[in-house]
Design a protein around this nucleic acid. Structure first.
Length: 686
DNA sequence: CGTAACGTCTCT
DNA sequence: AGAGACGTTACG
């Protein structure tokens, strides 16, 4: 009684099923823990929980919910545009629980942080301004929400299936058989049966469970409030710091101006960047932990976080902000994080703890808008700066990631502009010892096309979280990561991926690659992924893996669009692998343009003629192949293929392509290697 | 009113 | 921290 009615601080409204999501629409499985408890399935009915597979993925406010200010229900139907729709909807604050129309708010609503995962849920401007955090309150949404078999939205991203998950029933990839249930334990008995009287226990409980509940709930939050003191401390050095940073910024711009603008100004973006210039460089020592070569560039990262906090904390003052304005986020109170939250990307390699995704969950991470507002930079006078956003962006385009991060600290407007995803087509976090939640959210904010996470200790959970939010990702570099992490790819879907770099992934075996390449078990014929998750790949790097021909076969079948394939330093691969790739029916044969086989000790001269079967092949790296002789290579480059006889073993079943050198080959293909030096890299002669 | 099940409490 | 219990809310 005390609980629901008067929606207001402290009184929380229970959410209810949306009745529309996939989970809501399905029927009870009858097999999960909670189903088995239900009376209808012969259980005692004590647990009173929804079937695990039916847990709603988008629980809504009850119909009876009304605005605390105007007393009316949600009115989004009456809205015209998207904005108005939001204004007229009921929003429940996950911190103070207040339900209100944003339109009914006295203060601007801009500060509110919408939680995209849960309908009608945000952190209201009031709480944000006061620096309250949802942590003060406890868990926002249901505890067990994480795993029902639905691969759609979750309200918690807590644990996609973490490898070490021990929960019995929940969390299984869709399409798999239900897990073996716990042995039916008839010893279901609990207080009720066991200890009927226990008078004072019962009494205590009554009180707690009853009206006391709500009284009891708040104190934790209240008790956290005094935890504020740290803040002022942080705020103190702030002014100076800000000024310092601004100066830095000015110098930076000086430099930009001074720099020759011509070449790099090419707006034609990163595409050419071809990421990883190291593609064909000799590998670093296999499977050694990467050198911790990153400098103290924590500045930049630390900033990622800033921008996020900034966005939420400082809206209203920003109007007066010009670049000179002291509007630095560093000053903003940071109560929100509390002690547990990582506010800055670490200066020093932090201990290898499993990074707390939980922290992210509570945190809304939105991709950047197409063109971050505002259009002009408001000066202190109120007038807009003469240079408009697009002009600034042209300037920003010349800056490095790090410099951009410096800019983001200048003022809120710059902070927004610098998040423009055109400035972040490529993000490189390689060799960071730890990937922190703030890094992750920073990535999502920038929506890069190319992401380099090589030699990091990213976890599967983190990677999964990322991939699910980077649907436009085209290049993913995971060199030197663990298979444990990389396996996220076998669950996530990354439809736009064109380049995947799995070089030196630890413990990656044939069977794992199979998992990655095969279509998801529940894929249906019509679906895009029916042929395999990675069927759109143009480039695949598998250097340094312990894979066999079996993997090569799979690659050929399930990544048929490949133009570049890196199999260097795969010790188990020999001539048969090449025979597979160049076999008449092989989907790769006609498309393959670059093939890296450097350091494959089992390759022999005999495989060389096979290469002639690939009409588009323009570059083959055979360095450090012990049994491939420079002479044979030279011959391959120079000689016309002698009909079909050349090599003995490999079986040069005369492919259609190879033509005579001089003879102008007709349209179909320039079938052969043209100039020896470029096309064929021989062994490192030594 | 009955049923479903949310959210929090207690116990281990 | 996880699992179970149960008061209470949402809704037909």
């Amino acid at each position: 009684m005390s609980s629901s009615k008067g929606a207001g601080p402290g009184a929380r409204r229970r959410r209810t099923r949306c009745r529309r999501c996939r989970a809501c629409l399905r029927s009870e499985c009858g097999e999960c823990h909670f189903c088995k408890d239900m009376k209808k399935f012969g259980g005692p009915g004590r647990m009173k929980q929804s079937c695990l597979l039916r847990q709603c993925t988008a629980p809504v406010l009850p119909h009876t919910a009304v605005c605390v200010a105007c007393g009316e229900a949600g009115k989004e139907e009456a809205a015209a545009g998207e904005d108005e729709r939001f204004d007229l909807s009921l929003m429940e604050c996950s911190i103070c629980n207040e339900i209100i129309h944003p339109a009914c708010l006295q203060m601007g609503r801009a500060e509110g942080v919408v939680n995209a995962e849960i309908p009608n849920c945000w952190e209201c401007p009031k709480c944000k301004r006061e620096g309250k955090s949802s942590k003060d309150v406890g868990d926002v949404a249901g505890k067990r929400r994480a795993d029902n078999g639905d691969d759609g939205l979750r309200w918690k991203l807590t644990d996609e299936q973490a490898p070490a998950k021990k929960k019995g029933p929940p969390a299984m990839p869709p399409g798999q058989a239900p897990p073996p249930e716990d042995p039916p334990n008839p010893a279901h008995k609990r207080k009720k049966e066991r200890d009927p009287p226990a008078p004072d226990a019962g009494a205590r409980k009554k009180i707690k469970g009853g009206r006391d509940k709500h009284l009891k709930k708040k104190p934790p939050g209240a008790s956290l409030a005094p935890a504020a003191p740290p803040v002022p401390m942080a705020a103190a050095p702030d002014r100076r710091e800000k000024l310092e940073r601004f100066k830095q910024m000015c110098q930076l711009l000086e430099r930009v101006r001074a720099a020759p603008s011509s070449s790099s100004s090419s707006d034609t973006d990163s595409e050419s960047g071809e990421s990883s210039g190291a593609a064909h460089s000799p590998p670093s020592p296999p499977r050694l932990p990467p050198p911790l070569s990153f400098s103290t560039s924590e500045e930049e990262e630390d900033d990622e976080e800033d921008d996020e906090d900034d966005r939420e904390d400082e809206d209203e003052e920003e109007d007066a902000a010009g670049p000179g304005k002291e509007n630095n986020h560093r000053g903003a109170p940071r109560v929100r994080g509390g002690p547990r939250r990582l506010l800055a990307w670490p200066l020093v390699p932090s201990p290898p703890k499993p990074p707390a995704l939980l922290q992210l969950e509570r945190h809304v991470v939105r991709p950047p808008p197409a063109s971050p507002e505002p259009d002009a930079l408001p000066l202190a006078s109120g007038a807009p700066h003469v240079l408009r956003r697009h002009a600034w962006l042209r300037v920003f385009r010349h800056l490095s990631a790090r410099e951009l991060c410096v800019c983001m600290r200048v003022c809120r407007t710059w902070s927004r502009w610098c998040c423009d995803k055109r400035l972040w087509t490529r993000i490189d976090l390689s060799r960071r010892t730890s990937i922190t939640p703030s890094m992750l959210s920073g990535i999502i904010r920038r929506q890069p096309a190319s992401l380099d996470l090589s030699w990091t200790s990213i976890s599967k959970k983190q990677l999964m979280w990322l991939l699910n939010r980077l649907q436009g990702l085209r290049e993913l570099i995971l060199t030197g990561c663990s298979w444990g992490a990389v396996s996220a790819l076998s669950t996530a879907s990354v439809p736009a991926l064109r380049l995947l770099d799995l070089r030196w992934v630890q413990d990656l075996k044939d069977s794992h690659l199979r998992e990655l390449l095969l279509p998801p078990p529940d894929a249906r014929p019509g679906q895009t992924e029916a042929r395999g998750r990675l069927q759109g790949l143009w480039e695949l790097r598998l250097a340094g893996l312990d894979i066999t021909e079996a993997s090569v076969r799979l690659v050929a079948r399930h990544a048929p669009a490949l133009a570049k394939l890196d199999l260097s330093h795969c010790g188990q691969l020999g001539d048969p692998a090449l025979a597979l790739l160049t076999a008449p029916g092989c989907p790769l044969r006609d498309g393959l343009a670059e093939l890296n086989l450097a350091g494959c000790p089992r390759l022999t001269d005999q495989c060389l003629p096979l290469l002639r079967r690939c009409p588009r092949l323009t570059r083959v790296d055979l360095r450090a192949c012990r049994h491939v002789s420079p002479e044979a290579c030279a011959r391959l480059c120079q000689d016309p293929p002698p009909g079909g006889g050349a090599g003995g073993g490999g079986g040069a079943a005369g492919g259609p392509a190879p033509s005579v050198p001089g003879a102008p080959s007709p349209a179909p293909a320039p079938p052969r290697f043209r100039s020896s030096e470029e096309k064929l890299l021989l062994r490192d002669s030594s």
